[in-house]
Amino acid sequence: MSDELLKICGLRVSVDHKDILSGLELSIKKGEVHVIMGPNGAGKSTLGYSIMGHPKYVVEEGTILFEGEDITYEKTDIRAKKGIFLSFQNPEELSGVTLESFIRATKKAVTDKPVRVLAFKKELDKTMEELGMDKEYAGRYLNVGFSGGEKKKSEILQMLMQNPKLAILDETDSGLDVDAVKIVSQGIKAFKNDGNSLIIITHSTKILEALEVDYVHILVDGRLIRTGDANLIDEVNRKGYKELALV
């Protein structure tokens, strides 16, 4: 029980009074990598937003437990402080605040400790280098004028700097070219250890190549209809979601 990080029971979530998730169950232990696949509009992103607590995504029924604590109605920033991170499919832009000062402010917020300037700068430079990001980006306004790929790298950079217990990656590979997928995938691998967990929401499988996947879930119509190991990915690729749903 103690190694259970996230437990979702009977989760029903609506947006604008329309149910998107209907009775979703999911349990994630520390150190596990879970992949969520499913057709467009199945509710994959909704799952990510619901775990992070987006106010537009209303929990109608069910509970979300994180490290045994009920966080179903907890505010988003509190969830972040507990160690949950969501990498956005479409990261927001923020003018007037540089990437560096933003990461510093958020690091201070999640750790609740002052950030040491020099050590922080060193860590940031190193991490950016690993992600193949030009140093110049640190001084640019957060995601403003970043290409799709740069935005995704900025998300992974923030994940690495925050070092959360649970990272949810929502279509992090979309919009990335082959080389960038490789770099990002390496970044995710560097992040992964026995103590933290990943939920990877994806359409493609390239991003998974460097990782050991523990579970694959197929999300259709707001429910996980199949769960299996990494082999399920091949099955999806062969048969498609429609056929899987009929099985």
């Binding site: 992070m52 988003t76 920033d77 402080k81 969501l86 927001e92 923020l94 402010a105 958020t106 917020a109």
Partner: peptide
């Protein structure tokens, strides 16, 4: 945008 910033640990 508020949600994005809060998801990184900032209060509203």
């Amino acid at each position: 945008t508020i949600f994005y910033l809060m998801s990184r640990g900032l209060s509203e």
